[in-house]
Amino acid sequence: MMAQPATLASEYSNEIPLQPIEHRFNPYTGIAGEDFAVLAGDTRSTSGYSINTRYEPKVFDVGNNLLLTANGFAADSAQLIKVFKNQLEWYHFDHNKPMSTQSAARFIQHLLYGKRFFPYYVHTILGGLDEEGKGAIYSFDPVGSYEREQCRAGGAAASLIMPFLDNQVNFKNQMDPASDGKKRKPLRFLSLEEVIQLVRDAFSSATERHIQVGDGLEILIVTKDGVRTEYYPLKRD
């Protein structure tokens, strides 16, 4: 999967065509609450077995109370976020108002689908507040299919984290103890404290089991008062 290191001489293979992408599936998690949304990612950047850097932020506050992360091929991710930020500025020039979360989601679909035949190799998550002030998470595939969700994990340890979130956020397979296993546990919004603890647990567990996860955890939290960032160290092994 890794691109050939640029400095290896050509004698070892007859021809090494360009591998135009380099996977960087760092995990990221988005969870929507009643009046907040969080988007979190670890800060490690890897290629193959190498750790490029221990701190490379991947979740961005792009303005207008929107959080954005695009995970997969790092250069595409940087480009997508850059283009989005710039287009957001033009939206302000043209319309003189902030972009709503649902508009941003539809717009990201167009950015992704616009490169349908040479896609941005990323899985994108958008976090924000909806028209009613409720937390909203939108997740996208590389060519722009998207839906709004209560929670989503993606990237390297998605398969480790997502079942955990299903259970802890959407109460999948949880029953009401009083019902003798016949009634499902009723859904409720989690508090911000619960969500942050959940995210920290998810990432420290993923760090134990997945080699590309570690170094640091950056959690961005959006509420009606704006965006704030929290950083927690993870194991650096």
Partner: peptide, 15 residues
């Protein structure tokens, strides 16, 4: 060559 960029206190290319 892919346009990937990152910063770190220690950096090295290739070998």
């Amino acid at each position: 060559l892919l346009g990937v960029s990152y910063a770190s206190p220690s950096l090295a290319t290739g070998f």
